[in-house]
Write a protein that binds this DNA or RNA. Structure first.
Length: 648
RNA sequence: GCUGCUGUAGCUCAGAGGUAGAGCACUCCCUUGGUAAGGGAGAGGUCGAGAGUUCAAUUCUCUCCAGCAGCACCA
């Protein structure tokens, strides 16, 4: 029999007969290791202990101490165990797929009746029984035809469809958890008892389209989370509770920032406190932009459909625009307008006024552009995804040769802003051509190459997001994360050779001839609404002093201090601090609690002592101790802190 | 938009086929209290909207609207 050589992590190598399983390799090292083994890593591939090894390679045996493989196996085996439990309870349920994801797994089922919360309890109980029964897991490779015949007999149409989607050269692998069979790539554990019985939990049920395709049937997806031990599970559940407290929708109410109501779904009613954040952020952005070489414009809200037809948006996004029909008595035809869903076509109109020369380029045209989009009802989410919003939008009209330097310049600009606002880490995604698109393949080749090259030149690391580009060009997405780990696109940079063509933008080059400019669509915050949502969640409402809507509350301890409280408040206001007096007939404990919950960064308490000494007792949000300060130092420190990062 | 769930006072929630309750918040009174809830009294609801069943609907049924979770979408 042929021999193979396996190298272990410590560098030693040993010979084994070809076809030896990873379990046998572990056995060969030591009995105790074999007992603890859960899987192997073979040349970086996660390898089932039951799989035979046919070639030389580097091998490591994994135990439950190895985080990544342990969690993957626990979660993946639980997906199968859950599906088995479901089919044991309801034999007519059809199974589909069940991958590992985030902190657990999900499995999609086809069942006529909805799963109820009580059903989840039943499933979970049955799962525990299966785990405690320590049933063996075994695996086989099957002929494609045999697998199809099997699923025809057992009535599993989704599995048959999956088989047809597996490339012809890939083996069809079957797994059994006890007697229950599922087609699966693996790897898996050796028996169900290796899954910790007290470290998983079924979370919720939701609909999900089969194969992610909204023209296919909707299945029921059950989500679960699982960890290596009970404490990790508990920690995760606690984390979710904490995250819920940071939800911007909740904090928006508690801090009195904004509200929504039925009459304007997806549109924000900003309250004074919330609007303060908004305008402070906008003032900051405007200063940054002014200094970043942008010019600011403002363009119409209601624009004739002809412009949207010309830009190509009408064809692709008509369904998602707010249409405004104007029925003029004497007009021969109804005028059909749309609320602008984005600003770019209008910016081209500004660009097109008068002849432009190459000397005018690059022209960086910015607008705090209010847009309206009829977003699908299911997409709305607090102020993060809305139907009315304002972008910190800009279009850079430039020559093709400028793309690289402008991209680099933009990434630097964005990084500066993000770091000012407390986001040092963010993801970058590169999205290339989608199926539905404008422009020839040659133009797309050019645009993608230019953006890719420029991004690499700027030293930005990105992950690829295939097919996710805008219809007119490839894009970079700058992604931030909310309180419970959901990603949101904020900044973006899009290279566009299409719109200038469609809307006939041109400039006179050095050679005296007409040329097409390239447009770079870009936003840093994305929308003020979404970005403020992210800001609130990432700070848990405790915004930095310069952004806090209410910066200081001056609270009286006794009513004899009221006049002095008014004096201090007035003094702070005169210095540009957002200060309020609280002279209500309440105890200081009460006032401290209320304003702490309201996330006011500084509370000044004033009693007889402070009045007599002309000082204040200063308490910062989240801190227990207080300190006494004179009025001069107070105004000094606070005005310092109130300065925006770009003014320091 | 799709699947499921939810909608009762400003907020968080309880409730039952016979036209409603708590805590907090609010108003007033007492209290002048030193850093996360002092005491008392009062006011506050077309039970999301419409239709149906019923002697009677906030409660049951249907439709619509909005919200939540996920999916799909995101120029």
């Amino acid at each position: 029999m042929a021999q193979i050589s396996l190298t272990f992590p410590d560098g030693t190598a040993r010979e084994f007969p070809a076809g030896t399983t990873a379990a046998e390799v572990a056995e060969g090292i030591s009995k105790s290791l074999a007992k603890k083994a859960i899987s192997a890593s073979l040349d970086g591939v996660h390898w089932d202990l039951q799989w035979p090894i046919e070639h030389d390679g580097a091998i490591a045996i994994n135990t439950m101490q190895d985080d990544a493989p342990a969690l993957e196996l626990i979660r993946h085996d639980l997906a199968h165990i859950m599906a088995r439990a479901v089919q044991e309870i309801w034999p007519d349920v059809k199974v589909t797929i069940g991958p590992v994801r985030d902190f657990g797994w999900f499995y999609d089922f086809d069942r006529a009746e909805p799963f109820t919360p009580e059903d989840l309890g039943r499933i979970e109980t049955r799962m525990r029984e299966i785990v405690n029964a320590r049933e063996p897991v075994r695996t086989e490779i099957w002929e494609r035809e045999r697998a199809i015949r099997h699923y025809e007999e057992t009535g599993e149409p989704y599995k048959i469809e999956l088989i047809h989607r597996i490339p012809g050269d890939e083996p069809i692998r079957m797994y059994w958890h006890g007697d229950w069979q599922d087609m699966c790539r693996g790897p898996h554990l050796l028996h169900t008892g290796q899954v910790p019985a007290d470290a998983f939990k079924l979370m919720n049920v939701a609909g999900a389209f089969w194969l992610g395709d909204n023209t296919r049937p909707m299945l029921q997806r059950i989500y679960g989370v699982a960890f290596r031990n009970r404490n990790d599970l508990k920690a995760h559940l606690t984390m979710l509770e904490e995250a819920a407290k940071r939800d911007h929708r909740r904090l928006g109410r508690e801090m009195d920032l904004f509200h929504f109501q039925e009459e304007a779904p997806g549109q924000v009613f900003w309250h004074p406190n919330g609007w303060r954040i908004y305008t402070t952020l906008q003032d900051y952005m405007r200063r940054r932009q002014d200094r970043g070489g942008y010019v600011e414009v403002n363009t119409p809200q209601v624009v004739d459909r002809k412009l949207w037809e010309a830009s190509g948006h009408w064809e692709k996004y008509q369904e998602h625009m707010f249409i405004v029909e104007v029925d003029e008595e004497h007009a021969r035809e109804k005028a059909v307008n749309a609320l602008k869903p984005m600003n770019c076509p209008c910016h081209v109109q500004v660009f097109n006024q008068g002849l432009k020369s190459y000397r005018d380029l690059p022209l960086r045209m910015a607008e705090f552009g209010s847009c309206n989009r009829y977003e699908p009802s299911g997409a709305l989410h607090g102020i993060m995804r809305v139907r009315g919003f304002t972008q910190d939008d800009a279009h850079i009209f430039c020559a093709e040769d400028d793309i690289e330097v402008e991209t680099k310049r933009f990434i630097e600009f964005l990084s500066q802003v993000y770091s000012d606002l407390g986001f040092s880490a963010f993801k970058v995604k590169f999205s290339d051509r989608p199926e539905m698109r404008s422009g020839s393949d040659a133009v797309w080749d050019k645009a993608e190459a230019a953006l890719r090259q420029a991004t690499q030149a700027a030293g930005a690391e990105f992950e690829l997001n295939p097919g996710e580009g805008a219809f007119y060009g490839p894009k970079l997405e700058f992604v931030l994360t909310d309180a419970i780990g959901r990603d949101w696109q904020c900044g973006t940079l899009q290279v566009d050779f299409v719109l200038p063509e469609r809307l006939d933008a041109s400039y006179i080059g050095k050679d005296g001839a007409k040329h097409r400019p390239v447009m770079l669509h870009r936003a840093v915050l994305g929308s003020f609404e979404r970005f403020i949502g992210i800001l609130i969640e990432s700070h848990a409402g405790k915004l930095p002093f310069w952004l806090a809507p209410r910066q200081v509350v001056v609270a009286s301890i006794v009513s004899d201090a009221d006049d002095y409280v008014a004096e201090v408040t007035e003094m702070l206001r005169a210095a540009g601090i957002r200060a309020e007096a609280d002279t209500r007939n309440e105890k200081i404990n009460y006032k401290v609690r209320e304003h702490s919950l309201g996330k006011v960064p500084v509370i000044l308490a004033i009693g007889q002592r402070e009045v007599a000494e002309r000082t204040v007792s200063l308490r910062r949000l989240g801190e227990k101790h207080t300190r006494t300060e004179t009025l001069d130092t107070l105004v000094d420190t606070l005005t310092q802190e109130a300065r925006a990062p770009d003014m320091r």
